[in-house]
Design a binder for these strands. Structure first.
Length: 429
RNA sequence: GUGGGAGUAGCUCAGCUGGUUAGAGCACUAGAUUGUGGUUCUAGGGGUCGGGGGUUCGAAUCCCCUCUCUCACCCCA
């Protein structure tokens, strides 16, 4: 009976694990240097925690199950509810602002496609307790910091930024009814993916008034913050939202990352809990789904039974990012990296114990080293050393038997030197 | 949930107007090579041709069903 891997899951062979760790290490390193502290929660929670703020469609895409005690549970599809739960539990004792990050493994029972699997990793960073859009700027900075650290430039990726608050204010100002606004969001969110003609048709289905429709079409053509002012007129809410965006871009400029950032009124982000600044990271070709996204969600903690405290955050999965890194060849250096520092070869079977002793010493000193079980021809052992990507090879031969000398061969250059064994260990110390 | 594409060796694929024992490259193992690796040469292992049924003297090849993977739509927390 041949067992297949489950749909939408991945096996991480060593070469895949190296890539996964490359990404995970970057996430962690960048988070820490940006002042975020790591947290994690359980991989399953009560089902109702995820149903609370999600529609039926999203609830149907959960891996849900009943435990032996009859509890309805679900494997986590995101970690934000857990974050809200954890923060709420200690809200009175946690020093503000709270800057936390996590890199959870998540599961969603969606149909897999390019850049979307059923099990994946997602980097999350959140700042809780800061109203100022400086926090949003810092989140964006941290996201860009990560992209740069991993090897991507402003020629590869772009952060498209908008504001839910702005969109809500302008739509209301245009006279769009509150109850119809969600439907409009859904249409606007698709704009960049579909032809203009299709977009106009879809808009027609949600807004019957041609004048209002035209206003929205004009608004969606806006490419800079300056152009927005004309739309806002004297509306205070809209003007305030524009001011906030201007302030945000001011911060981004001071932080030195404007080359990565672009205002884009078309960024809406699903029907999620976003209330203010929203943004998404895209591969410049725009052939892929978003690499990551985030924004401000000021009601989340309150929705999960806590106080009304503002929050802003960002999430990035490993699937799309992995595709981008593969396309740009940024994983290539991983296969060239040495896994082993010293491979110890021996020219005579009688020296096997010596090589074992030497390897043990090296390992105790924290040096990655290995040797051949089989021994045999030196050529075989050198071949083995190459196969395991060893940086250097120590050869135990007549030099050792007669003069206690080690031959050290650099595998990249092929050059070798002969050193006294004491000098070798002295050099390591 | 809806629609397209594809399943032949570990991987990429050829073979498909039915016809001996199903092939190539890469990868793997061994040898050439018991003191010098990545190259080269030689040999070897590895397949219920996704599965089931049908047509036929004969099916990887034709027909039906089914499973799996993949891409897109829906959705995207």
């Amino acid at each position: 009976m041949k067992i297949q891997p489950v749909k939408g899951t991945r096996d991480f062979y060593p070469e895949d694990m190296a890539k996964r760790n490359f990404i995970a290490d970057c996430w962690k390193q960048v988070s820490l240097r940006n002042g975020f502290a790591e947290y994690d929660g359980p991989i399953f929670e009560y089902l109702k925690m995820y149903q609370l703020k999600s529609g039926d469609e999203i609830a149907s895409q959960l891996f849900a199950f009943e435990d032996r005690g009859g509890r309805d549970l679900a494997i986590r599809p995101e970690i934000t509810p857990t974050l809200a739960r954890m923060v709420n539990q200690r809200i009175n004792t946690l020093p503000k602002p709270i800057k936390w990050f996590s890199t959870p493994r998540l599961c969603r029972a969606e149909r897999p496609q390019k850049g979307r699997l059923r099990e994946f990793f997602q980097w999350n960073i959140d700042i809780i307790g800061v109203d100022d859009c400086l926090a949003d700027a810092e989140i964006i900075f941290c996201a860009v910091d990560c992209l740069q650290q991993i090897g991507l430039t402003s020629k590869d990726v772009v952060v498209r930024i908008s504001s839910r608050r702005l969109l809500a204010a302008l739509l209301e100002y245009f006279g769009i009814k509150k109850q119809g606004i969600e439907k409009v969001y859904t249409v606007l969110d698709k704009k960049s993916k579909i032809p203009q003609e299709t977009f106009e048709k879809m808009l027609e289905e949600v807004i019957s008034d041609p004048a209002k429709r035209q206003k929205i079409l004009d608004l969606m053509a806006v490419e800079s913050l300056e152009q927005l002012e004309d739309f806002a007129g004297a509306d205070e809410n809209s003007k305030a939202a524009i001011e906030e965006l201007k302030q945000l871009f001011g911060y981004l400029e001071v932080m030195g990352i404007t080359e990565f950032c672009r205002f884009d009124i078309g960024i809406v982000r699903g029907l999620a809990y976003y209330t203010g600044i929203v943004f998404e990271v895209y591969d410049i070709s725009e052939q892929l789904r978003a690499i990551g996204g985030g924004g401000r969600y000021d009601n989340l903690l309150a929705d999960f039974g806590g106080p009304k405290i503002s929050a802003t955050g960002f999430g990035m999965g490993d699937c799309v990012l992995g595709i981008v890194l593969e396309e740009k060849g940024l994983f290539e250096k991983l296969s060239q990296q040495s896994v082993i520092d010293y491979f110890v070869a021996y020219t005579d079977q009688s020296l096997q114990n010596k090589s074992l002793e030497l390897v043990s010493k090296l390992r105790k000193s924290g040096i990655k080293s290995d040797f051949s079980y089989k021994g045999g021809a030196l050529g075989k052992q050198l071949k083995q050393a190459s196969m395991v990507n060893s940086a250097k090879c120590i050869i135990l031969g007549d030099e050792f038997t007669q003069k206690k000398q080690l031959v050290i061969k650099d595998m990249a250059s092929g050059q070798q030197e002969t050193v006294e064994i004491e000098d070798f260990f002295g050099r390591l110390g």
